[in-house]
Amino acid sequence: MLASIEACCGNDHHVLGPIGRVDRGRRAPGERGLCAVHQAVLRHFAAVGRTPEPAVLAALAAAAGRTAVDVLAELDREDFLTLDDGGRIRAAYPFSAVSAPHRLRLGNGVEAWAMCAIDALRVAAMLHQDVTITSRDPVDGGPITVAFTDGTARWEPAETVIFAGQRAKTGPAATVCCDALNFFADLSAAKAWARQHPEVHGRITSRGKP
Rank of each mutant, 00 (worst) to 15 (best):
A3Y: 15
G10N: 05
H13Y: 13
H13S: 02
V15E: 09
G17L: 05
P18K: 08
G20K: 10
R21H: 13
V22K: 11
V22F: 08
V22R: 12
R24N: 07
G25W: 07
R26E: 04
A28K: 10
P29D: 03
G30T: 10
E31D: 10
R32Y: 13
L34A: 01
C35D: 11
V37D: 06
V37G: 03
A40Q: 13
A40H: 14
V41G: 04
L42P: 13
L42F: 14
H44T: 09
H44I: 03
G49P: 15
L57M: 08
L57Q: 10
L57P: 11
A59D: 10
A59M: 11
L60T: 07
A61V: 04
A62K: 12
A62C: 03
A63F: 13
R66E: 06
R66K: 10
V71G: 03
L75P: 09
D76Q: 03
D79E: 05
F80N: 04
L83W: 15
L83P: 14
D84K: 08
G86K: 03
G86P: 08
G87S: 04
A92W: 15
Y93P: 06
P94D: 02
F95E: 09
F95C: 04
S96M: 06
A97M: 08
A97F: 14
L104G: 07
R105A: 00
R105C: 00
G107L: 00
N108F: 00
N108L: 00
N108S: 01
G109M: 00
G109I: 02
E111S: 02
W113T: 09
C116S: 05
A117S: 06
L121W: 04
L121P: 05
V123G: 00
A125L: 03
D130Y: 11
D130I: 00
D137W: 10
P138E: 01
D140Y: 14
G142D: 10
T149V: 04
G151Y: 13
T152W: 11
T152L: 06
A153G: 01
V161W: 12
R167Y: 06
A168G: 09
A168R: 15
A168Y: 15
K169M: 06
G171V: 05
G171Q: 06
P172G: 01
A173P: 14
C177F: 14
C178E: 10
D179N: 09
D179W: 15
A180L: 06
L181M: 11
L181V: 09
N182G: 05
F183V: 01
A185S: 13
A185Y: 15
A185C: 09
D186N: 11
D186T: 06
D186H: 14
W193V: 00
E199N: 09
V200R: 12
V200F: 07
H201M: 05
T205R: 12
G208N: 05
